[in-house]
Design a protein around this nucleic acid. Structure first.
Length: 575
RNA sequence: GCGCCCGUAGCUCAGUCGGAUAGAGCAUCAGCCUUCUAAGCUGAGGGUCGCUGGUUCGAUUCCAGCCGGGCGCGCCA
């Protein structure tokens, strides 16, 4: 709307021959940092300065003079120093935001940006060789938020978990469980090198024994190993599924790596590559010519011994994803895999797609702290804090919000003490409390028989206080934040936004009265006879203002809820 | 050595497309509960945006080079 007005002004000035404007500039609007700079500011005059060969200030003046309907749209149009155009909208226009929220409700902020675009988001994809740990938890939170953000912007999304149920890691799992099983049967066996050390392996072995008794002892060792592996795989995958379920995450699709091998898909893919001279033999191994697409060197897909590498099945997997007709593949990976990106993008290009078809979101390590002190973990010794432990201690909501608070590509310090603290220091509660507090307010209003109008029923013009306008302005940018979070695949932007919105709401609540005070002054003469300067008199609120503020709070609550929802965090009615 | 990421307040971090006097939380200090949830609020102090150059009306932002930190560079996954 504002951009249109400014563009119109530029055209008018051009028609009148005041400005040349060889090329219509992009009118970029931004939210000024300081309130006295108005609601919207525009730098177009400065960017035109060079081509017009006039000082930016002059150009800004011309633009301001040529805005049509200036009186209807703007309360003020200021021109500041180099050539900023600072626009202050008429307050009535802001009230449209609240009516818009009312119309859209849970859909407010959603868009059709991605309409017709199909996206596959693959995340977690942890090996089924043990329980999920905190790092997986962060990936899970990020992946889920991305799925929800993409859906909210109109994309058609499928969430998928890629199960690494083939290869060396699975073999090691079987060997490890069998060793523990034999141990529990009284045999002394050396524990396999690189085996899984964790205590949970003993637990799995114990369940093998419950199920099979000592039957495995009489089997050939390879069979016993196979049985142990299958048993452990089922148990651990189920455990992962349950952990994710508790975390509030379910996948629509579980894709097995082993299926790619057994169906011959891997073989087929390599043949395809060979036909196109993207596969060659060297040193007794088979190599993918990934360097043809910008990777720094070629990569082995089949080892000398004839086994396929992880990359081979990954090529088949990504080809399968591409074949399924997705317009965008999003992979959420641990940051330690970042060196893998060029070769996967090479795969995408080898199949004739632009490399942008695959976007990899990297998730950095989580440092667990307890009261400021680092919790030591040793993956080698199998000692790590599981996602389950974290959820048990701080709850799924707090864990998710913490995981999403920072840019996923940066290290995260996660203080368990802080996350479970239900206090001002904990950003999760700060945001959730904003929601709960409004619920409480609306409940109290209802119980006192006070009418709670929706924005369309309230006299919104009474919301003239700068604090109220600041909140409304904040609500108005929610759709922008949601879209930016999606396009950049950066959910932490939404988490920040919610923190900021809550940071406007709590002070407002404290400073301003919404409902009329319960004690009326006539029955409490003390308040009049003792006009002590330390006693703050309740702000006077007319029924109309109460209604308008309730409508405002209702709108805030809707937006907080929408924001939390998109992050996969609950919005409690009371706390 | 090569590649990727990072360096912003004491700490943890935001900072959109290059914009104005660089922001938030925590911590610190000083205050606020007869009032709709104090799980809250008010105020104060705190900065060479790692360094040096370049690009330009303007650089925390873009480019180059250094310094410092992390990660990756397997016929592991």
């Amino acid at each position: 709307m504002v951009a249109e007005a400014l563009a119109g002004s530029l055209r008018l000035a051009q028609q009148r021959g005041i400005l040349k404007i060889e090329q219509m500039p992009v009118i970029n609007l931004e939210a000024p940092k300081r309130p006295e700079w108005g609601d919207v500011s525009c730098t177009v005059a400065m960017s035109l300065s060079a081509s017009e060969r006039r000082p930016p200030f002059e150009i800004a003046q011309i633009i301001a003079d040529h805005i049509q309907d200036r009186e209807a749209l703007f309360a003020r149009v200021d021109i500041v120093r180099p050539g900023f155009l600072n626009l202050t909208l008429k307050p009535e226009l802001w009230m449209e935001v609240l009516r818009h929220i009312e119309t859209q409700q849970a859909e407010y902020g959603h868009s059709r940006l991605g309409q017709g675009r199909r996206v596959l988001v693959e995340y977690v994809s942890a090996n089924p060789t043990g329980p999920l740990h905190v790092g997986h938890g962060r990936g899970a939170a990020v992946g889920q938020a991305l799925v929800r953000l993409l859906r909210a912007t109109g994309h058609e999304v499928v969430s998928e978990y890629y199960i690494n149920d083939a290869g060396r890691q699975m073999k090691l799992l079987g060997v490890s469980v069998l060793a523990r099983y034999l141990e529990s049967c009284g045999q002394t066996v050396p524990f396999p090198e690189d085996g899984y050390q964790g205590e949970y392996i003993r637990a799995v072995a114990a369940r093998v024994k419950v199920e099979h008794g000592v039957a495995l002892l009489s089997l050939p060792s390879s069979d016993a190993e196979q049985r142990s592996k299958e048993f452990a795989y089922r148990e651990l995958l189920e455990l992962i599924r349950q952990d994710l379920d508790t975390f509030g995450i379910t996948f629509e699709s579980w894709f097995s790596e082993a299926s790619l091998l057994s169906s011959g898909a891997v073989e087929q893919v390599l043949n395809e590559l060979r036909d196109r001279d993207l596969l060659f033999d060297q040193d007794g191994a088979q190599w993918f010519r990934s360097s043809a697409y910008g990777d720094e060197k070629d990569r082995v897909v089949r080892k000398q011994e004839g086994e396929y590498t992880y990359l081979a099945s990954d090529i088949a997997y990504h080809r399968d994803k591409l074949r399924r007709g997705f317009d965008l593949l999003v992979d959420v990976w641990g940051a330690d895999h970042h060196g893998y990106i060029p070769r996967m993008q090479a795969v995408v290009q080898a199949y004739g797609y632009p490399k942008e078809r695959l976007r990899v979101v990297l998730v950095q390590m989580v440092n667990l702290l307890r009261g400021g002190r680092k919790v030591e973990m040793s993956k080698r010794a199998g000692e790590f804090i599981t996602l389950r432990e974290v959820m048990d201690e701080v709850g799924a909501d707090a864990a998710k919000f913490f995981f999403l608070m920072r840019d996923s590509s940066t290290h995260l310090d996660f203080d368990l003490e802080l996350a479970k603290q239900q206090s001002q220091e904990n950003p999760v509660y700060y945001v959730q409390y904003a929601h709960a507090r409004i619920s409480s307010l609306l409940r109290v209003a209802a119980s006192r028989g006070i009418d709670c109008p929706l924005p369309s029923q309230a006299d919104l013009n009474l919301l003239a206080d700068p604090d109220e306008l600041a909140i409304i302005r904040k609500l108005s940018v929610f759709p922008v934040v949601l879209e930016a979070s999606t396009v950049e695949l950066e959910p932490h932007r939404m988490a920040y936004y919610l923190r900021e919105l809550a940071g406007l709401v709590h002070p407002f609540y404290n400073k301003h009265r919404i409902l009329p005070p319960i004690t009326d002054l006539e029955t409490t003469p003390a308040a009049q006879t003792e006009p002590s300067s330390t006693v703050r008199l309740p702000e006077a609120v007319s029924p109309g203002l109460t209604g308008a503020r309730l409508a405002l709070m209702w709108s805030v609550q809707q937006v907080v809820r929408n924001g939390l929802t998109v992050l996969g965090v609950s919005a409690p009615e009371q706390m």
